[in-house]
Simulated assay, not measured.
Amino acid sequence: MSDQLSLVFGALADPTRRAILARLTGGEATVTELATPFAMSLPAVSKHLKVLERAGLISRGRSAQWRPCRLEAAPLADVAGWVQTYRRFWEGGFDRLDEHLRALQDGERS
């Protein structure tokens, strides 16, 4: 796994950071706007934002004193690609479960 992918998975491991990303799907937001739903200080939210920024999941603009945060989706596509390589394993499990359930239903009908 690449170092960047490790940073992304590490950033996504925290529920606060996932909630921040979910909020950013609706558009840009300031640190204050992002901090509103959380019972934590602005510096604590800023630390979460630094982790997200280091992982490439957000970027911060600059417009005078306003520094809006925005979602950057490319690292999420990389995660999706990595997960996709393992799809056949869980689909195979579902296929086996379907076969087992069908066999149970056929046994009940007999």
Rank of each mutant, 00 (worst) to 15 (best):
Q65C: 02
A39N: 08
G61Q: 10
G93Y: 02
L52T: 15
Q65L: 07
A29H: 01
K50T: 14
E99K: 15
L52N: 13
S6W: 14
G107E: 09
A35Y: 00
R23E: 06
A35Q: 03
L7S: 14
A74M: 09
F89I: 06
E108A: 06
S6E: 15
R54D: 13
P68V: 07
E99M: 15
Q84L: 06
A39K: 08
R60K: 14
E72N: 14
L49R: 10
I20T: 01
F9M: 13
E91M: 11
G93R: 02
R54T: 07
F38L: 05
S59Y: 03
L5E: 08
A13H: 07
R102G: 01
C69W: 06
R87V: 00
A74R: 14
L12R: 01
L7M: 13
T36D: 06
Q65P: 00
W82T: 05
T25Y: 03
H48L: 04
S59I: 03
L7W: 08
L21F: 08
D78I: 04
E72A: 13
A44T: 15
A73D: 02
D78H: 06
D98V: 14
P68W: 07
E91G: 01
G26W: 06
L21C: 09
L7C: 08
E28S: 09
R62W: 07
R60G: 10
F89G: 02
R102M: 03
A103M: 10
A55H: 06
G92Y: 02
L101R: 05
H100T: 13
H100K: 11
R88E: 04
L57F: 05
R54E: 08
E108L: 11
A77L: 15
V51T: 14
L24F: 03
